[in-house]
Computed example of a mutant assay.
Amino acid sequence: MQTNQVLDARGLNCPLPILRTKKALNALQSGETVKVVSTDPGSVKDMTSFCEQTGNRLLSSQQAGSDYEFVIRKT
């Protein structure tokens, strides 16, 4: 899946992956996407909750080795 931006949040713990994701989304136009890569296992629940609360769309969530990858579309 092609994205407009990739955010490397590996090595960061809660709440930093969410805060960086929020900042990245603020810089995007509506309909654009960001891929977030994190190593924090808590980010799976956090990204889901974040998208539900902000209205942005979580297009995919998967684990790739020790990384958690999320693709979010800005609404």
Rank of each mutant, 00 (worst) to 15 (best):
K23P: 12
T48Y: 04
P15W: 13
E69H: 09
D8M: 05
A64P: 08
L58C: 09
Q53F: 15
V34H: 11
T33A: 07
R73I: 14
S49T: 08
P15N: 11
T54N: 01
N26P: 12
S66E: 06
T54K: 01
K23T: 13
T3K: 03
K23G: 09
I18Q: 02
K35N: 07
S66I: 12
T3R: 05
T33E: 06
S43Q: 00
V44L: 03
T39Q: 00
L58T: 11
N26T: 12
F50R: 01
K35P: 14
A64Y: 05
L59A: 03
A9T: 07
L59W: 10
D8S: 07
E69Q: 08
M1I: 13
I72V: 14
A27T: 10
D8E: 03
S60D: 12
N26E: 11
L19E: 10
N13T: 13
S49M: 00
Y68A: 02
S61E: 09
K22R: 04
T75L: 09
L7C: 11
T21H: 02
V44R: 01
I18Y: 06
Q53D: 13
T3E: 09
K74A: 00
L28H: 15
V6H: 08
E52M: 08
E32K: 14
Q5Y: 14
C14A: 01
T33V: 12
C14K: 00
N56T: 13
T48G: 05
S38D: 04
S61T: 12
S30H: 15
L7Q: 01
Q53V: 15
G65H: 09
Q2T: 14
V36T: 13
K23W: 10
T33N: 07
A64Q: 02
A9G: 05
G31K: 11
F70S: 06
L59N: 02
Q53W: 15
V71D: 00
T3Q: 09
